[in-house]
Amino acid sequence: MSQGKVLIIGGGPAGLEAARTVADLGYPVVLVEKRDRLGGTPDAVHYAQLTHHFRDAGEVMAELVAAITDNPNVEVLTDSQVVACEGEAGNFRVTVQNGAGPKTVEAGAIIVATGFQHFDPGRETQYYNYYSFPDVITIADLEGMLRAHQVVRPSNGETPERIAFIQCVGSRDRQIGNEFCSKVCCGIASKQAIEIKRLLPDSRVFIFYIDMRMYGYWENELYWPAQEQYKVNYIKGLVSEILPKGDRLLIRGEDTTMGRPMEVTVDLVVLSVGMEPSTGTRAMAGLLGLEQNKYGYIAAGGPTGVDPVATSRPGIFVAGAAAGPADLDDSFSMAGLAAARAIATLRRAG
């Protein structure tokens, strides 16, 4: 058996799952995380409940972290960043920098799991006055409120009566260059709408959308319950602008399936911001010399197009949202495949 190691960059869902799989299969792992703790974006942004059975996100992430903690096969380097890499498949020499100074890690294979960041609604143009109107928030902001079990209007701390979600903010938009679908926001908005109705049963929740992408079981686990049990109103049509109306917000759009323009007054607007490659993903792609697609994600698929964890560089694999919008299932599935490919690389080298 090869004595090589797998270096994993990123301690979010994909990185943690890849680390667990490599370690469980008996190979040593070095997991490098930029933040001072593991858990990735779900932890950093204080996600409340996951779409999976509405499980507590903190609990799920803690379980993933626990699975590699005190594992003799896993070395975790937090507050650390990869600053240099040379060599080739089977024999990479990676420099990891942290407070203690630079350290060289010999690794046979590398898995990049540096993830995404939420689209910034203030990028380029001020989308929907996110930075001007306190009662315009994002799904990421709302996760924090839901985690605290307190959904309020930031402007005055009052309970909102009418809440509107706007879908595809920063996604499917040629104007801003993000032509892709961010894949999870439909499910997340529906999940959050249900959570809001559970907290505030008298509230009225609208979701303005272009298409609702409720693939697989999200249809019956999220979309139908949101509509049928919680009476969330899905309106096909996007909001063009948000204006102040007294101390509330007036949103303008078209109710396309009813065939008419509309103006609706609400107390809280939630922007369903999409995914973009994280700064870490862009930095690692550059440092490791990985081909990126036009959106900045790490180009995956390999020469065959059907290898979702292959990068342009042999021996370096990608898992999770570093390769494009991904939900947790995608991230975990890719992590397992990346772990298998990485170990195969070690074995071939050994």
Binding site: E161, D202, R204, M262, V264
Partner: peptide, 10 residues
């Protein structure tokens, strides 16, 4: 609770 009442409808 208030109504749906989209303002521009005739």
């Amino acid at each position: 609770m208030t109504d749906w009442n989209p303002g521009k409808v005739v």
